[in-house]
Design a protein around this nucleic acid. Structure first.
Length: 799
DNA sequence: ATACTGCATGTCAGC
DNA sequence: CTGACATGCAGTATG
C-alpha cells in the first residue's frame, strides 16, 4: 500500500494515513484516494474542491445545484434528463420515490416506454448504472440493516429506461466481466482479494463474480437495463436485449394478486405494512416464489430511498428453518434464489463465497449443492458463526442483498417478533406474496418451526429434541414447540366440547319433513371448558372456573360458558356471583376431574399433532381441532363424566352423535339410507339448487362485468377465477356427497369465502368425521350451526 | 462419543 | 403430479 499514490490527479499524494475508496475503475476496482481526497469524495465535494476551475459545470434542472459533468468523480451523482440537461441524483431520487408512490401500471402499458404518473418526459436517462458508491457509508449500511436491506426493484420503475437499447446493450456488455469465469468457480473471489476486506469500507469491493457483476446497477436502472443473466447476456447483445425486454415485461407485470401489495401500492400512502416485493433482477428471478421476495415497508422503503441511493438491491430472503439455524451450520438456499443470485457452480463441492453482514463484517461460506432427485439442493455451509453473530434462530428471517456497484452479497436478518409472525407470514407469503409483518427490524415469515417467540437457542434445541421424540411429526410447517403452544393444543373432542354459538347469532329454524334444522349464520366460537359432575342432590351440574379469581363455581348443567367466564356471569347462584364470594367446591372435589387422563392424553396428542393457536373461533377453531381428529377414539375412552361429542352434549346424552363411534365408522357411510342421512341429503339438495341458481346469476353478472372492465388488471381477473374455482370446488364437493349445511344459499359470498378458506365441509373431509358429528337430537338447545332431530335418532337413543 | 458430511426420504406447495 | 426443501440418517472423521 505504501507505494501507491492518490489517484486524484491534482493530488497524487504518495502517502496517506488512511486510504479511501473513490470511483469505480473500469477494471472493476476502486480508485485509491488519500484521506483528504477520499473524504472530499465521500462528502460529495470532490469536484467543488478539485475541479472548480475546470469546465463542464452545469446546473441541475430541478434544484439548480451545480454539477460537474464529464468527470469521473461526479460520474454517478447526476443523470441526463430526457428533455435535456442534467439532474442531480438527489432530485432524481426524490422524483423516483414520488413516482413510485403513485405508481399505477396500466395493463396496456407499452413495454417500450414507461409513462409514470404523467412524468415520462422527466424520467431520467441513467448515464451509468452505478451511483455514488462512495457515499455509501457504514451508517447507511446499518440503516439497511434496520430495514432489512430492501429496496425493491419496483422502486426503479420510475427510472426505467428502455428507449435506448443500444445503451442497454452497452451497459450490459460493459458489465460482463469474462464469460469464461462462469465456469471457473475458483475465480469467484479472485478480484480484489489482495485488498483489505474488512469493514464497511470495502463494501463496494467488486467480487468479480461471474453472475453478480452483471447487476452492477442501481435498482432504478438495473431492473430493466442490467440483468445478471450470465449466460444470456454473455452470449451476445441480441440475446441480451431479449432478456432485457423480457425482464422489463416481468417488471411491468403486476405481481400476483396480493392484498398487501396491491392495496399499498394503490393507496399510494406510506404504510407500515411489510410488503413482499419482487426481488431484484437475476437469472430466472421471476420464478422466485413470493415467500422469498424481500419485504420492506413502504416507510422503510422511503427512508431508504432518501438516505440510500439505491446502492443495495434486495435479492431474496428466507425464514430460517430448524435445520438452517441448527448447529449443523448448513443453510439451505432456495434453489431458484441460489441459481438466480449466486454464482453458477458446476461442481458439487461448490465455491467459497464471501458475504457481508450488516455491520460490514465479512463471512466466508461454502456455496455448494447436493444432487437431489435429478435436481440440486443448494446450501451455504459454515453459516453457524454468522447465524450466531446475528443472533437469529429458527423462525427468523435472513435476507440476501447485494451492493451496487460491486455486487457484494450482503446478508441481513430480521427477528421474528412473535410466534404468529413467524408462523403466519410465510404461509401468507406463500399464498399471497406478502406478509402482515410487523417486526422490529423486520417482519418474518413463517413456514417453519416456530419457537413461540423465545429467543434463546434452547428453544431450538428443544424443538429438535422434541422432534426426535415424535418421529412421526411431519407437519413441520405448522409445528409449535413451546409450552405455550402445548397449552393451546386441543383435541378434536375438546374442541367440540367448547363450541358455542356466536354470541349474537340467532338460529334460523328450518323444518324439513318433521326434522328441525337450526342454521346459524355465524360460525361457532370457543367457550370455556366445563367439567360435568354430580351435585349434592345427585343432579348433574357443571363446574366452571372464574377467569378472574380462579374459584370454581357450580353451575347448572345447561349453563353455557363464554370463553372468559367470570363469577359475575354466575346468574344461577346469586350468592356466588362475585369473586369475593367463597368457593363452595373443595380441591378434593375437583381432583377426579381436573387431572384427568384427558390432559395427559392431550399432552400426548399435542406432541404429535398440530397446535391450536390463540383463541380461534368458529371454523378456524374447528380446523385446528380437526387436525387432531385421529385421536378421538383414544380420548373418548378416558373422558371424564360425560362424553363430549358435540357442543350441546350433556352427561348421559345418547344422541346419534354420541352413540356412534367418533369416527362414524359403521354408522353412517356415504350410502347410508337412514332417515337422518336422507333428510340431510334432501335438505342439502335444496340448498344446492338455490346455490346453483344464484351461481348462474352471478356468473352472468360476472361476464357482463368482465366485458365492461376489459381494462381491468390481471389480479382482478384472477379473483374472479378464484371465485369460480371456489364455486366449482364447492359444487364438486357437493357432488361427492359431502354436505355443507353451514352454508346459506342466500349468503353466497360468505359461503364462498368459507369455501376458499376453511369450510365445515373441508374440515369434515379432513378429519373424516361424518356430518352427524355436528348434529343434535333436540331443537330446544341452540348451540350448533346446524342441528336436527329425527325420529331415527330417537329410535337409536332408545336402543 | 461427538461432530461432520453427503445423501436419502417424506412432505407439501405450486403448477 | 412434480419439484423443492426440511430433515433424517448412515458413514466417516476427529477428539
Amino acid at each position: 500500500m505504501g507505494s501507491k499514490n492518490c489517484m486524484n490527479d491534482v493530488c497524487r499524494e504518495p502517502a496517506s494515513s488512511e486510504w479511501r475508496k473513490g470511483w469505480t475503475l473500469k477494471s472493476g476496482g476502486f480508485a485509491t484516494l488519500c484521506y483528504r481526497c477520499g473524504s472530499a469524495y465521500e462528502n460529495s465535494v470532490f469536484c467543488e474542491t478539485f475541479h472548480l476551475e475546470e469546465s463542464g459545470w452545469r446546473e441541475c434542472r430541478i434544484c439548480g445545484k451545480r454539477i460537474h459533468c464529464g468527470c469521473i468523480a461526479s460520474r454517478y451523482v447526476h443523470e441526463y434528463m430526457d428533455f435535456g440537461g442534467v439532474g442531480c441524483i438527489t432530485c432524481l431520487k426524490h422524483l423516483e420515490v414520488h413516482s413510485e408512490q403513485s405508481l399505477q401500471i396500466p395493463s396496456n402499458v407499452s413495454n417500450d416506454r414507461v409513462s409514470i404518473n404523467g412524468i415520462k418526459d422527466v424520467h431520467p436517462v441513467v448515464v451509468d448504472n452505478g451511483i455514488d458508491g462512495d457515499k455509501f457509508s457504514g451508517r447507511r449500511l446499518l440503516q439497511l440493516a434496520k430495514v432489512t436491506g430492501a429496496i425493491d426493484s419496483c422502486s426503479g420503475l420510475g427510472q426505467l429506461t428502455h428507449d435506448d437499447p443500444l445503451r442497454k446493450t452497452r451497459q450490459s456488455s460493459k458489465r460482463i466481466p469474462n464469460p469464461t469465469q462462469q465456469n471457473s468457480p475458483s475465480t469467484f473471489f479472485q478480484t480484489d482479494n489482495s485488498k483489505p476486506r474488512e469493514g464497511i469500507q470495502n463494501i463496494y469491493e467488486p467480487l468479480a463474480l461471474p453472475s453478480l457483476n452483471f447487476s452492477l446497477t442501481t435498482p432504478s436502472s438495473s431492473s430493466a437495463t442490467n440483468l445478471p443473466f450470465p449466460g444470456g447476456i454473455a452470449e451476445g447483445s441480441e440475446q441480451c436485449k431479449g432478456s432485457l425486454r423480457q425482464a422489463l415485461n416481468i417488471l411491468l407485470k403486476p405481481p400476483k394478486p396480493s392484498p398487501t401489495v396491491g392495496s399499498e401500492i394503490n393507496k399510494g400512502t406510506v404504510s407500515q405494512a411489510r410488503v413482499a416485493r419482487p426481488p431484484a433482477e437475476g437469472r430466472g428471478r421471476n420464478q422466485l416464489l413470493p415467500r422469498y421476495w424481500p419485504r420492506i415497508t413502504d416507510q422503510e422503503l422511503q427512508q431508504l430511498s432518501g438516505d440510500l441511493k439505491s446502492n443495495i438491491v434486495p435479492l431474496f430472503e428466507k425464514v430460517l428453518s430448524a435445520s438452517d439455524a441448527g448447529r449443523i451450520g448448513r443453510l439451505v438456499l432456495p434453489k431458484a434464489c441460489a441459481e438466480a443470485f449466486f454464482p453458477l457452480i458446476n461442481q458439487s463441492e461448490g465455491i467459497p463465497i464471501m458475504i457481508q453482514d450488516m455491520t460490514g463484517k465479512e463471512w466466508t461460506f461454502q456455496f455448494r449443492f447436493w444432487p437431489n432427485n435429478n435436481s440440486r439442493m443448494y446450501v451455504l455451509e459454515g453459516v453457524t458463526p454468522c447465524i450466531q453473530n446475528m443472533q437469529v434462530q429458527a423462525g427468523d428471517t435472513v435476507t440476501f442483498s447485494h451492493i451496487e456497484p460491486g455486487g457484494q452479497l450482503v446478508i441481513g436478518c430480521r427477528k421474528a417478533i412473535n410466534n404468529g409472525d413467524a408462523q403466519d407470514s410465510q404461509t401468507l407469503a406463500s399464498t399471497s406474496g406478502d406478509s402482515p409483518g410487523g417486526t422490529s427490524f423486520s417482519g418474518t415469515n413463517g413456514n417453519l418451526l416456530s419457537n413461540g417467540g423465545k429467543t434463546s437457542g434452547d428453544s431450538l434445541q428443544q424443538s429438535i429434541s422434541e422432534k426426535k421424540k415424535a418421529k412421526n411429526i411431519k407437519n413441520k410447517r405448522l409445528l409449535m414447540h413451546t409450552d405455550d403452544a402445548t397449552e393451546l393444543r386441543i383435541t378434536w373432542e375438546e374442541a367440540q366440547e367448547l363450541l358455542r354459538p356466536f354470541p349474537t347469532a340467532e338460529p334460523t329454524v328450518v323444518v324439513v319433513e318433521d326434522h328441525e334444522f337450526e342454521e346459524f349464520e355465524e360460525p361457532p366460537i370457543f367457550g370455556k371448558r366445563p367439567i360435568y359432575t354430580s351435585g349434592p342432590s345427585e343432579e348433574q351440574d357443571q363446574l366452571a372456573q372464574c377467569d378472574s379469581c380462579l374459584k370454581w363455581r357450580r353451575l347448572p348443567v345447561h349453563a353455557l360458558l363464554s370463553a372468559k367466564w367470570t363469577c359475575s356471569e354466575n346468574i344461577w347462584d346469586l350468592k356466588r356471583c362475585s369473586c369475593p364470594a367463597p368457593e363452595e367446591i373443595q380441591p378434593e372435589d375437583l381432583e377426579p376431574f381436573v387431572p384427568s387422563c384427558k390432559d395427559s392424553k392431550r399432552r400426548k396428542v399435542s406432541e404429535n399433532k398440530m397446535p391450536k393457536v390463540g383463541e380461534p373461533s368458529g371454523l378456524d377453531a374447528l380446523a385446528t381441532a380437526a387436525g387432531l381428529g385421529d385421536n378421538i377414539s383414544d380420548i373418548a375412552e378416558c373422558s371424564v363424566g360425560a362424553t363430549t361429542r358435540h357442543p350441546r352434549h350433556r352427561l348421559g346424552c345418547t344422541c346419534i352423535v354420541c352413540i356412534q363411534p367418533p369416527s362414524g365408522k359403521g354408522k353412517h357411510d356415504p350410502t347410508c339410507k337412514c332417515n337422518v342421512c336422507l333428510t340431510v341429503r334432501r335438505r342439502f339438495e335444496t340448498l344446492m339448487m338455490r346455490k346453483k341458481k344464484r351461481q348462474s346469476e352471478r356468473e352472468a353478472e360476472d361476464s357482463q362485468a368482465k366485458d365492461r372492465a376489459s381494462l381491468k388488471i390481471e389480479p382482478a381477473r384472477e379473483d374472479i377465477a378464484g371465485d369460480k374455482k371456489g364455486m366449482e370446488a364447492d359444487m364438486e364437493e357437493a357432488s361427492k356427497g359431502q354436505l355443507d349445511l353451514n352454508c346459506d344459499p342466500h349468503r353466497e359470498d360468505e359461503m364462498l369465502a368459507q369455501t376458499a378458506g376453511m369450510s365445515l365441509t373441508t374440515l369434515m373431509s379432513a378429519v373424516a368425521v361424518p356430518l352427524d358429528m355436528f348434529l343434535e337430537p333436540t331443537s330446544a338447545q341452540k348451540q350448533e350451526n346446524i342441528t336436527f332431530v329425527s325420529a331415527d335418532t330417537e329410535g337409536r337413543q332408545q336402543q
